[in-house]
Computed example of a mutant assay.
Amino acid sequence: MSRLHGKIVKAVRVRDTDLGRVVGESLKRLRELAGLSQSEIATRLKVGQAAISKIEHRGDVQISSLQKYVEALGAELRIEATFTREALKKLRFEGAFDPDLQDDDQFVFPIFGDDLFRPKRDVVLSVRPVYSQKIMAGEKTVELRRRFPISAPSGTVAYIYSTSPVRAMVGSAEIENVYKMPIADIWKKFGSKARITRDDFESYFSGLEAGFALKFKNARAFARPIDLSELRRRFRFEPPQSFLYASPVLRTALEDEYSDVSH
């Protein structure tokens, strides 16, 4: 396995100043490593061989084309941004949210890929007050998202941040499952459990063909909501637009200091 891993790493690390050509050459080497010809890849993608040749030799490749090519190899495309520790210090979310630590001097954040989920991570979800109240009351057992990692493991804890005007962390719930489905199917299966009107549902998912449904269980409200000013002071917290991974320090504080929950 280590020998194969070395071949794969070597295949994608082509040294050249022309990044576009590097990507094309990397794809070619990966294809050859997989034992596939250009015509075989073309058949899988239902395009002409000339299109594959163009991808492997052109100076630039669109992400959509890159994704399809990689999937035809039987792999997933992952694009990540890597920061050194020094660069990370300049980022405003350094304290409250935890990136995926790959080694001692770099941090990696996912940029592309719905299926990415950082191992052993819990999340913070920003939820409008009208819905966060229903989650804490056990009335809303499904939360809807335009994007979310489909591979989030069962039992992942979602800490609920209630947005303006509440602006506070109000409780938590366990994610029992994550579903990615066509929008129409989400409404049929989860519309009532999400406690959302049809108009709001269609407005939220406007422009998308598929969305995500997070099935909750064991929702619990904190005995004392943690307001934004305290979250900022103690954890350098900034509310996420949708979700972010909770850092160990934030997660530990929420577990230890606010474990006395209301039922």
Rank of each mutant, 00 (worst) to 15 (best):
R3T: 07
L4P: 01
H5E: 13
G6D: 12
D18N: 15
L19W: 09
E25N: 12
L30N: 02
E32M: 04
S37I: 04
Q38E: 13
T43R: 08
K46Q: 10
G48T: 05
A50M: 05
E56H: 03
E56Q: 04
H57L: 08
R58S: 10
S65M: 06
S65A: 14
Y69V: 03
A72H: 04
A72C: 07
G74Q: 02
F83M: 07
T84M: 08
E86R: 07
A87P: 00
A96G: 14
F97R: 06
F97G: 08
P99C: 00
F109G: 01
F109R: 13
P110C: 11
P110L: 11
D114N: 12
P129L: 06
S132K: 09
Q133M: 11
K134V: 00
G138L: 11
R146Q: 13
R146K: 15
F148A: 13
P149E: 13
S151N: 15
S151Q: 14
S154H: 12
G155F: 09
Y159I: 05
T163Q: 06
M169L: 15
V170K: 08
N177L: 07
K180L: 10
A184N: 08
I186D: 07
K188F: 03
A194Q: 09
I196W: 04
Y204W: 08
G207C: 03
A210I: 01
F212V: 09
L214E: 07
A221R: 12
I226M: 10
L231M: 15
R232E: 14
R234V: 11
R236Q: 07
F237K: 11
P240A: 09
P240D: 06
S247P: 06
P248N: 05
T252W: 11
